[in-house]
Design a protein around this nucleic acid. Structure first.
Lengths: 261, 261
DNA sequence: ATCGCAAGGATGTTCGAACAAAATATCGAT
DNA sequence: ATCGATATTTTGTTCGAACATCCTTGCGAT
């Protein structure tokens, strides 16, 4: 749903909102309430609409999403295996908490795996791969970062395109498992990013740097310069992480309710 | 359940059958039918008791496991996110198929991630880590490979100890995410291994080599010789993969029903 | 005032039945 | 005999109610 990872592999997480120009326009059959609510919950979890640590009561969710508890249980169960939701027997489901240590772990591994995947994609990618990167980059560059975080639609749009760009880079890595893991890490990182960046605090210089990094990675990848591409990608991730961590500590301090990380 | 990975982290998959000497002996509360059936299905999926591609009908499962369909749906949903089960709306659940390409992907990434984790563990592990490795190795060496694959209990026992040994090697890597991914890959590889090794076809020489590899990896890890440890571990994995692939092709040929991989 | 215990309410869990979709069998036409 | 449409059966999906557990509240004893 949220990200474009896993698309077209046997490891699909949820049908992509980024629907490719499919043969028939309105062919969304074979769907069940359970699948729908899974996708919606997943989106809201990653977007931070459901707050970390929050209890997910059935009556509450049932009212909010307009579905019964049977499909809800199904969706929540899957989200437990996705690590987005926690479950304790007889005590219900809660939104998975955020923690600084998890953030560090997440980012370190994400950098490692994404660079690994990028290297493989550079070795194997064909012209379609190159074309997709350029297309995704173009779409991303044409989507301005929304000035207000309140503008959910705009944020969703940007996140989706950003996600899709990063996916396009590694799509040709020819390893469904690696793509799956990169997707999971990307989703979880997005959750931190969106939970924490409450103000568009980024300076214009930073934004420009990020845009340049995107472009540089894309160009290096297409030029088959694996060293340059991976080093810039790692740099790009490192930059994001630092911003997120800075904001995270700020937000933690301001909340000050010691939730122990 | 099946493997010892994920234990004690926030990324727990199912409670470990390898229960550590816990404080109270019979403190298995907070369990639900859904959790239990999840663990049992997971075990049977990995052990190959449920055949790849097989349809998982509710009535059938309900009768076989003695639970209603509500807990079953819950368990199956989680197994979908675990990639052990496939789901198609209105067409039910099936056991995830095996394929040669998946096997290759799986093994390549498993080697990479496990060696990565081993390197980290060697850098960070303390005396307890060393002790656990030796303990797990000892237990593994004391468990003979069962002569017949029919002897389920013996096979389960060996697999569990083998799994636990490999887990002990990387347990100190200090990355819950990496451990989680290694565990997932390990579980899926085990599924291939057990699906395919229908006869204990391994020669005595091969078994001896495997045993030596286990011991060598353990010793190199404790001696903090990362290069040697990872290279032997990679070699060990490579050997397993080759045996599995050889058997896989044999089994595929004998079945001859072209299921297209 | 604090602690322990019991009653009540809230919440999670499970089941059985009603409903909907898919797969299969049946029948008639060519 | 084969093909296609319809009827039947099977199977998956969802709901609502019954049940169990947990948490909170209020009472009484120390």
């Amino acid at each position: 749903m949220t990200s474009a990872y896993d698309r077209g592999t046997s490891l699909s997480r949820a049908e992509s909102a980024v629907s490719l120009p499919s043969v028939a326009p309105g062919d969304d059959d074979a769907t069940t309430l359970g699948i729908e609510i899974y996708a919606r919950l997943r989106r809201d979890l990653i977007a931070g609409h459901l707050k970390p640590g929050e209890r997910l009561r059935f009556r509450q969710l049932s009212a909010a999403y307009g579905v019964g508890i049977a499909p809800l249980r199904e969706a929540l169960s899957r989200l437990v295996s996705d690590q987005l939701v926690r479950f304790e027997g007889h005590r219900g489901y809660t939104v998975a908490p955020l923690s600084l240590s998890d953030l560090h772990d997440l980012c370190a591994l994400r950098t490692e795996l994404s660079c690994n995947a990028l290297r493989r994609a550079i070795a194997r990618g064909d012209e379609d791969w190159e074309a997709e990167i350029l297309a995704a980059l173009h779409r991303l560059e044409r989507t301005p970062l929304p000035h207000s975080v309140e503008d959910r639609k705009a944020v969703d749009e940007w996140e989706q395109r950003h996600d899709r760009f990063h996916y396009s880079l590694i799509a040709a890595c020819d390893s469904p498992w690696l793509l799956h893991f990169c997707g999971a890490l990307s989703d979880h990182f997005q959750r931190y990013r969106r939970a924490v960046i409450v103000v568009t605090s980024s300076s214009e210089a930073l934004l420009k740097r990020v845009r340049e990094q995107h472009r540089t990675v894309a160009e290096a990848a297409i030029a088959r310069d694996a060293e340059r591409a991976t080093s810039v990608l790692a740099e790009h991730f490192q930059g994001s992480v630092e911003v997120v961590i800075r904001n995270y500590e700020e937000v933690s301090r301001s909340l000050s309710a010691g939730n122990g990380d």
